[in-house]
Every structure is written in structure tokens, then in C-alpha cells.
């Protein structure tokens, strides 16, 4: 299982994230994350807080399971699914800065397929 996590915006305007391959993590850590992913029950949805809100952090969690199926969930501070809170906290602890990418001429990855996302192709330098 692979997890790609991104956070952007908010008052701080930071761009951070983490790309995790559970295979390469110590088994105990991988097991904990796997449980949090199950509990989060993420689906391919994008939820947004009130349109009048300002300074919300935008979150994106992409999960590629062992069969290569990918789920991408996007939400913000005002619309975090309750079930995903523990997973989000675990990922935030692992988040590191990701320099802003210059937009590429290709279709933006936000609208692209899950495969690129699962490989963590975004945000690397």
C-alpha cells in the first residue's frame, strides 16, 4: 500500500506532504497506518467548507492499495471527515515541505489518474 499526502494553503500558506510506501516502513508502523487507512474509509470525494470561508488548509490523501486500486480524497479544515481525523494526524506528523511546482504543460495532476499519484510523482525535487 502506498499513501500520498498533500496539504496546501491555510493562514500559513505552506505546501507540505509525504509519500509513504508501507512496504518500506517498519512492520509495526506500516500496520498502524494500514489500520488508520481502514478506519478512515476514504472515498473518491472532494468536500469543501463554506464558500465564504478564508484561510482553510486544503488536504489531499491518495491511497493505492496492494491491488493497484487508487482512492483520492480531498477536503479542507471545515470538511475533514471525522473518520479520517486519526489518519490525517498521523500523516501531518510525517509531512515535510514540498517546493511549489511550476505548472507543467501536461494536464494538471489533480485531474489525472490515480497511477501517477500513487507513485508519488508530484512534489518531488
Amino acid at each position: 500500500m502506498r499513501i500520498s499526502y498533500r496539504e496546501a494553503g491555510g493562514f500559513a500558506g505552506l505546501s507540505r506532504g509525504a509519500d509513504l510506501d508501507l512496504e518500506s516502513l517498519p512492520p509495526a508502523q506500516a500496520g498502524r497506518l494500514r489500520k488508520l487507512v481502514e478506519r478512515a474509509r476514504l472515498r473518491d470525494v472532494e468536500t469543501r467548507g463554506p464558500s465564504a470561508a478564508r484561510d482553510l488548509v486544503g488536504y489531499e490523501i491518495a491511497i493505492e492499495d496492494d491491488d493497484g486500486r487508487t482512492v483520492v480524497a480531498r477536503f479542507d479544515d471545515a470538511s475533514v471527515p471525522e473518520s479520517a481525523t486519526p489518519l490525517l494526524e498521523a500523516l501531518q506528523k510525517r509531512a515535510r515541505p514540498i517546493p511549489l511546482q511550476k505548472p507543467s504543460p501536461r494536464v494538471p495532476s489533480a485531474k489525472g489518474g490515480g497511477e501517477q499519484r500513487g507513485k508519488g510523482s508530484r512534489g518531488r525535487t
Binding site: 500558506g13 507540505r16 486544503g58 511549489l100
Partner: peptide, 26 residues
Amino acid sequence: PLLGTDPQPKHLRDKYTGTQDEGGVH
């Protein structure tokens, strides 16, 4: 190590044109 480098431009030529952060509002 935690924040990276301040991404704010101080000149129009360095304006961010990507989609992140609602098109770089911050």
C-alpha cells in the same frame, strides 16, 4: 526543515501560476 523556503514572490515576474492554494492566494 519543517517549512521549506518562503514561496512568496516580491515581483510580478515571479508570480506563481499553478493551481495550488486556490491559485496561490497566500
